[in-house]
Write a protein that binds this DNA or RNA. Structure first.
Length: 208
DNA sequence: ATTAAGATCAACT
DNA sequence: GTTGATCTTAATG
Protein backbone atom coordinates (compact mmCIF):
# COMPACT_ATOMS: atom_id res chain seq x y z
CA UNK A 1 0.00 0.00 0.00
CA UNK A 2 1.04 3.58 -0.53
CA UNK A 3 2.53 6.00 1.96
CA UNK A 4 -0.53 8.21 1.71
CA UNK A 5 -2.79 5.31 2.60
CA UNK A 6 -0.66 4.73 5.69
CA UNK A 7 -0.89 8.38 6.63
CA UNK A 8 -4.62 8.55 6.12
CA UNK A 9 -5.03 5.64 8.46
CA UNK A 10 -3.37 7.61 11.20
CA UNK A 11 -3.59 6.17 14.69
CA UNK A 12 -6.54 3.94 13.95
CA UNK A 13 -7.20 2.27 10.64
CA UNK A 14 -10.79 1.30 10.06
CA UNK A 15 -14.08 2.59 8.71
CA UNK A 16 -16.41 2.78 11.67
CA UNK A 17 -19.49 2.42 9.48
CA UNK A 18 -18.35 -1.10 8.60
CA UNK A 19 -18.70 -2.04 12.28
CA UNK A 20 -22.32 -0.88 12.48
CA UNK A 21 -23.52 -4.43 11.92
CA UNK A 22 -24.07 -7.48 14.12
CA UNK A 23 -20.86 -9.19 15.17
CA UNK A 24 -21.47 -12.27 12.99
CA UNK A 25 -21.37 -10.01 9.93
CA UNK A 26 -18.30 -8.09 11.05
CA UNK A 27 -16.26 -11.20 11.96
CA UNK A 28 -14.65 -11.74 8.49
CA UNK A 29 -13.46 -8.14 8.55
CA UNK A 30 -11.55 -8.68 11.78
CA UNK A 31 -9.87 -11.89 10.61
CA UNK A 32 -6.49 -10.74 9.31
CA UNK A 33 -6.85 -7.28 10.86
CA UNK A 34 -4.16 -5.85 13.13
CA UNK A 35 -4.54 -4.94 16.80
CA UNK A 36 -1.76 -2.81 18.24
CA UNK A 37 -0.84 -1.53 21.66
CA UNK A 38 2.47 0.26 21.99
CA UNK A 39 5.24 -1.69 20.30
CA UNK A 40 3.31 -4.95 19.99
CA UNK A 41 1.14 -5.67 16.96
CA UNK A 42 -0.92 -8.83 16.45
CA UNK A 43 -2.62 -10.18 13.32
CA UNK A 44 -6.02 -11.55 14.36
CA UNK A 45 -6.64 -15.17 13.35
CA UNK A 46 -9.60 -16.23 15.49
CA UNK A 47 -12.67 -14.45 16.92
CA UNK A 48 -15.99 -15.29 18.52
CA UNK A 49 -19.21 -13.30 17.99
CA UNK A 50 -21.47 -12.40 20.91
CA UNK A 51 -24.93 -11.14 20.04
CA UNK A 52 -26.36 -9.39 23.06
CA UNK A 53 -30.00 -9.91 23.89
CA UNK A 54 -30.58 -12.84 21.51
CA UNK A 55 -27.49 -14.76 22.68
CA UNK A 56 -27.59 -16.79 25.91
CA UNK A 57 -23.78 -16.90 25.86
CA UNK A 58 -23.39 -13.14 25.90
CA UNK A 59 -22.67 -11.02 28.96
CA UNK A 60 -25.37 -8.68 27.64
CA UNK A 61 -28.09 -11.38 27.41
CA UNK A 62 -29.77 -10.10 30.57
CA UNK A 63 -29.52 -6.45 29.71
CA UNK A 64 -27.21 -3.63 30.58
CA UNK A 65 -24.93 -3.79 33.62
CA UNK A 66 -22.02 -1.74 34.81
CA UNK A 67 -19.62 -4.26 33.34
CA UNK A 68 -21.11 -4.60 29.85
CA UNK A 69 -22.22 -1.02 29.22
CA UNK A 70 -19.48 -0.31 26.68
CA UNK A 71 -20.94 -3.07 24.47
CA UNK A 72 -24.07 -0.95 24.21
CA UNK A 73 -22.05 2.07 23.12
CA UNK A 74 -20.46 3.20 19.87
CA UNK A 75 -18.89 0.45 17.72
CA UNK A 76 -15.12 0.44 17.35
CA UNK A 77 -14.48 0.66 21.07
CA UNK A 78 -12.80 -1.94 23.26
CA UNK A 79 -14.81 -4.05 25.72
CA UNK A 80 -12.62 -5.74 28.32
CA UNK A 81 -13.58 -8.01 31.18
CA UNK A 82 -11.79 -10.04 33.82
CA UNK A 83 -12.53 -13.72 34.30
CA UNK A 84 -11.43 -16.87 36.14
CA UNK A 85 -9.60 -14.77 38.69
CA UNK A 86 -6.65 -14.05 36.43
CA UNK A 87 -7.43 -13.33 32.80
CA UNK A 88 -8.40 -10.22 30.91
CA UNK A 89 -10.25 -10.72 27.62
CA UNK A 90 -10.71 -8.10 24.90
CA UNK A 91 -13.58 -7.55 22.47
CA UNK A 92 -14.26 -5.18 19.59
CA UNK A 93 -17.70 -3.58 20.00
CA UNK A 94 -20.01 -3.93 16.97
CA UNK A 95 -23.50 -2.82 15.97
CA UNK A 96 -24.98 0.68 16.42
CA UNK A 97 -25.28 2.34 19.82
CA UNK A 98 -27.99 0.75 21.91
CA UNK A 99 -27.38 -2.75 20.50
CA UNK A 100 -24.93 -4.92 22.41
CA UNK A 101 -22.75 -6.97 20.08
CA UNK A 102 -19.08 -7.74 20.17
CA UNK A 103 -16.26 -9.88 18.85
CA UNK A 104 -13.98 -11.62 21.35
CA UNK A 105 -10.37 -11.60 20.18
CA UNK A 106 -9.38 -15.23 20.69
CA UNK A 107 -6.05 -15.67 18.95
CA UNK A 108 -3.52 -13.99 16.71
CA UNK A 109 0.06 -13.92 15.49
CA UNK A 110 2.53 -11.45 16.97
CA UNK A 111 3.98 -9.64 13.95
CA UNK A 112 5.77 -6.82 15.74
CA UNK A 113 7.25 -6.33 19.19
CA UNK A 114 7.85 -10.03 19.81
CA UNK A 115 10.44 -9.29 22.49
CA UNK A 116 7.96 -7.26 24.53
CA UNK A 117 5.26 -9.90 24.06
CA UNK A 118 7.62 -12.65 25.24
CA UNK A 119 8.61 -10.62 28.28
CA UNK A 120 4.93 -10.55 29.28
CA UNK A 121 4.42 -14.23 28.47
CA UNK A 122 7.51 -16.02 29.75
CA UNK A 123 5.72 -19.37 29.72
CA UNK A 124 4.87 -19.26 26.04
CA UNK A 125 6.88 -21.99 24.35
CA UNK A 126 6.44 -21.05 20.72
CA UNK A 127 5.94 -18.06 18.50
CA UNK A 128 2.47 -19.32 17.63
CA UNK A 129 1.59 -19.70 21.30
CA UNK A 130 2.31 -16.09 22.27
CA UNK A 131 -1.22 -14.85 21.56
CA UNK A 132 -3.19 -18.11 21.38
CA UNK A 133 -6.30 -18.01 23.55
CA UNK A 134 -8.19 -14.89 24.66
CA UNK A 135 -6.38 -14.47 27.97
CA UNK A 136 -3.00 -14.88 26.32
CA UNK A 137 -3.93 -12.54 23.48
CA UNK A 138 -4.67 -9.70 25.88
CA UNK A 139 -1.60 -10.44 27.96
CA UNK A 140 0.77 -10.47 24.99
CA UNK A 141 -0.48 -7.02 24.02
CA UNK A 142 -0.49 -5.75 27.59
CA UNK A 143 -4.23 -5.04 27.50
CA UNK A 144 -5.77 -4.61 30.97
CA UNK A 145 -9.15 -3.61 32.39
CA UNK A 146 -7.99 0.00 32.23
CA UNK A 147 -8.10 -0.21 28.43
CA UNK A 148 -11.84 -0.96 28.51
CA UNK A 149 -13.90 1.60 26.62
CA UNK A 150 -10.95 2.89 24.63
CA UNK A 151 -11.76 4.10 21.09
CA UNK A 152 -9.83 1.85 18.71
CA UNK A 153 -9.44 4.77 16.31
CA UNK A 154 -7.58 6.76 18.96
CA UNK A 155 -5.75 4.33 21.25
CA UNK A 156 -3.92 3.34 23.35
CA UNK A 157 -5.21 0.15 21.72
CA UNK A 158 -5.77 0.56 17.97
CA UNK A 159 -7.40 -1.49 15.20
CA UNK A 160 -6.17 -1.57 11.62
CA UNK A 161 -8.43 -3.21 9.06
CA UNK A 162 -7.42 -4.02 5.49
CA UNK A 163 -10.04 -6.14 3.75
CA UNK A 164 -12.35 -8.97 4.84
CA UNK A 165 -10.86 -12.46 4.92
CA UNK A 166 -11.73 -14.24 1.68
CA UNK A 167 -11.75 -17.65 3.34
CA UNK A 168 -12.59 -18.62 6.87
CA UNK A 169 -14.16 -21.46 8.83
CA UNK A 170 -16.86 -21.36 11.51
CA UNK A 171 -17.81 -23.61 14.41
CA UNK A 172 -19.19 -23.71 17.93
CA UNK A 173 -17.76 -21.33 20.51
CA UNK A 174 -15.17 -22.47 23.02
CA UNK A 175 -15.69 -22.58 26.77
CA UNK A 176 -19.21 -21.15 26.64
CA UNK A 177 -21.46 -22.86 29.17
CA UNK A 178 -25.19 -23.47 28.71
CA UNK A 179 -27.19 -23.09 25.52
CA UNK A 180 -24.83 -20.49 24.09
CA UNK A 181 -22.06 -23.06 23.69
CA UNK A 182 -23.88 -25.47 21.43
CA UNK A 183 -23.65 -25.76 17.65
CA UNK A 184 -26.92 -23.80 17.55
CA UNK A 185 -24.59 -20.82 17.80
CA UNK A 186 -21.70 -21.51 15.35
CA UNK A 187 -20.24 -18.11 16.00
CA UNK A 188 -16.54 -18.88 16.22
CA UNK A 189 -14.58 -17.76 13.15
CA UNK A 190 -10.99 -18.57 12.24
CA UNK A 191 -8.48 -18.55 9.39
CA UNK A 192 -8.07 -22.09 7.97
CA UNK A 193 -4.89 -23.88 8.94
CA UNK A 194 -3.35 -21.02 10.87
CA UNK A 195 -0.97 -22.36 13.56
CA UNK A 196 -2.00 -19.69 16.07
CA UNK A 197 -5.67 -20.73 16.21
CA UNK A 198 -6.62 -22.16 19.62
CA UNK A 199 -8.01 -25.70 19.87
CA UNK A 200 -11.70 -26.26 20.55
CA UNK A 201 -12.63 -26.99 24.15
CA UNK A 202 -16.01 -27.64 25.61
CA UNK A 203 -16.98 -25.66 28.68
CA UNK A 204 -15.75 -27.41 31.81
CA UNK A 205 -18.15 -27.84 34.67
CA UNK A 206 -16.72 -26.80 37.99
CA UNK A 207 -16.74 -29.09 40.95
CA UNK A 208 -18.51 -27.79 44.00
C1' DA B 1 -22.33 -8.07 53.27
C1' DT B 2 -21.88 -12.48 51.28
C1' DT B 3 -21.57 -15.80 47.72
C1' DA B 4 -21.27 -18.48 43.46
C1' DA B 5 -19.91 -18.73 38.86
C1' DG B 6 -17.04 -17.70 35.14
C1' DA B 7 -16.38 -16.02 26.93
C1' DT B 8 -9.29 -19.45 30.95
C1' DC B 9 -4.54 -21.37 31.37
C1' DA B 10 -1.03 -24.50 32.60
C1' DA B 11 0.33 -28.39 34.98
C1' DC B 12 -0.48 -32.91 36.07
C1' DT B 13 -2.16 -38.12 35.92
C1' DG C 1 -8.93 -36.13 30.77
C1' DT C 2 -8.77 -33.62 35.16
C1' DT C 3 -7.77 -29.95 38.48
C1' DG C 4 -5.93 -25.86 41.05
C1' DA C 5 -5.01 -20.96 40.83
C1' DT C 6 -7.20 -16.55 41.54
C1' DC C 7 -10.63 -12.29 41.76
C1' DT C 8 -14.29 -9.46 39.45
C1' DT C 9 -18.96 -9.19 38.70
C1' DA C 10 -23.80 -9.68 39.48
C1' DA C 11 -27.26 -11.65 42.14
C1' DT C 12 -29.07 -12.39 46.59
C1' DG C 13 -29.99 -11.47 51.73
Amino acid sequence: MTDTAELQRGAGGFDRSLLMAPAVEVAPLLLGAIIRKGEVAVRVTEVEAYMGSIDPGSHAFRGRTNRNQVMFGEPGHLYTYFTYGMHTCANVVCAPEGTASGLLLRAGEVIEGEDAARARRPKAASHAGLARGPGNFAQALGITLDDGGCDLAVGPVTLHVDEPASEYLTGPRTGVSGAGGTHEYPWRFWLPGDPTVSPYRAAVSRKR
